[in-house]
């Protein structure tokens, strides 16, 4: 009898400590944890909508399409609306598909750095982001919002702030640029770890 009580008490204690640990984990949902969560899947397929709100236009500029992000191979950004435009972002930079050929796009000296920044944003790579931005993270694993404020004088002249929000995956990125423009990226129908199609493989695998 005594022995049985001891076992119950012990298991209760174990359970309690487990619960406490779970609570602790929830309350310390920080940038590294978010990074880890976003980097769980090796590959992500999904849809996107991009809207740019420009002061001179009544309607936002809107484009939409699908994307494939592979942790190793890079990002395919396949715009379908308002017209077709295939872009690829990887280690060697930004490329654009023209007549079945991938041509490097090098029309802005600053772009290499921005493409890296963009990839870090989508991959929630806190090691890349922390040196550049002050971050504030609200919410929990299921629903979170990350606000990034640029640290450097130079970056402040480009962005006012960037807001990223989501759950298991990123759902929305809002960039508020210093000169009054606002860009929104909305992601939907995200499917982790789907195999690459033939055309995707051809585009991504060097």
């Amino acid at each position: 009898m005594k022995r049985r009580a001891l076992i119950v008490a012990l298991s209760l204690a174990v359970l309690a400590s487990l619960g406490a640990r779970a609570n602790e984990a929830n309350s310390s949902f920080d940038l590294p944890a978010l990074s880890q969560q976003l980097q769980q899947s090796e590959r992500l397929h999904g849809q996107f909508i991009q809207r740019r709100f420009l002061p001179g236009l009544a309607q936002p500029l809107q484009s939409q399409g699908r994307f494939v992000m592979d942790r190793e191979l890079g990002l395919l950004w396949l715009i379908e609306q308002p017209w077709q435009l295939d872009l690829r972002l990887n280690q060697s930079g930004l490329a654009q598909q023209q007549d079945g050929q991938w041509l490097a796009v090098a029309d802005n000296a600053a772009s290499a750095q921005f493409t890296r920044l963009f990839l870090s944003l989508l991959q929630g790579d806190h090691q890349q982001l922390t040196p550049l931005f002050d971050s504030q993270l609200h919410g929990n694993r299921e629903q979170w919002q990350l606000t990034l404020q640029p640290r450097s004088l130079l970056l402040k002249q480009v962005f006012q702030h960037i807001v990223v929000s989501g759950g298991n995956e990123i759902q929305q990125v809002t960039l508020l640029e210093s000169q009054g423009d606002r860009s929104e990226l909305l992601f939907s129908q995200q499917q982790p770890n789907q195999p690459l199609s033939d055309s995707e493989r051809r585009a991504l695998v060097p």
Binding site: Q50, R52, L54, P55, G56, L57, L61, S63, W77, I79, P82, L85, L87, L89, L94, V105, D107, N108, A110, S111, F114, T115, F118, V158, E177, Q179, G180, D181, S183, L185
Partner: peptide
């Protein structure tokens, strides 16, 4: 303007044709 990876130095409304880039 469709490409989110290349912010221009001048915002589009100041340079629609992107001569600056």
């Amino acid at each position: 303007l469709l490409d989110p990876f290349r912010p221009d130095l001048l915002p589009p409304q100041e340079d629609w044709l992107g001569f600056a880039s």
